[in-house]
Simulated scan of single mutants.
Amino acid sequence: MALTLRSLRPFLGKLGTGTLATALGLALATLPARADNPDGPYLGVGSGQFKLNIQNLDDAGTAANSILHSSNNAQKYFAGYRFSPNWAIEAAYIDLGRCGDHFTATGSNGNYRVNISGFSPALIGSLPIGPFELSAKIGEYYYDSKLHVDFDAGPAIESSHRRNDLLYGGGLGLTFFDHLHVRAEYETIELQSAKHSDAFWLSAAWRF
Rank of each mutant, 00 (worst) to 15 (best):
G170P: 13
D144G: 11
L180G: 06
F151R: 11
T22P: 00
K14G: 03
T17A: 12
Y112I: 08
N37K: 02
S193D: 09
T30Q: 07
P131G: 07
A92K: 03
E133S: 04
K137Q: 15
Q55H: 05
T175F: 05
G13W: 01
T188K: 12
G61L: 03
I116C: 10
S197Q: 07
N37W: 02
I94H: 01
R9M: 06
S193Q: 12
H102A: 10
A204E: 06
R162H: 13
F200M: 05
L24C: 02
K195S: 13
P131A: 13
Q49N: 00
P38A: 03
V45H: 00
K137P: 00
L167V: 11
L26F: 04
T104I: 08
G48T: 02
G173H: 11
L166E: 13
R163S: 14
E158A: 15
N86P: 03
E187G: 12
G154S: 09
A184T: 13
I116W: 08
S7T: 04
H148S: 14
K14A: 04
Y168H: 13
L57F: 02
A122L: 06
G170S: 09
S126D: 03
L172C: 12
I157C: 00
S71W: 02
R9L: 05
T4C: 02
Y186R: 15
A60P: 00
T19N: 05
L68P: 01
A105S: 14
F119A: 06
Y93E: 08
L28N: 01
T22L: 09
A33E: 09
A156R: 15
A27C: 03
D59F: 05
S84E: 10
V149I: 09
L52G: 00
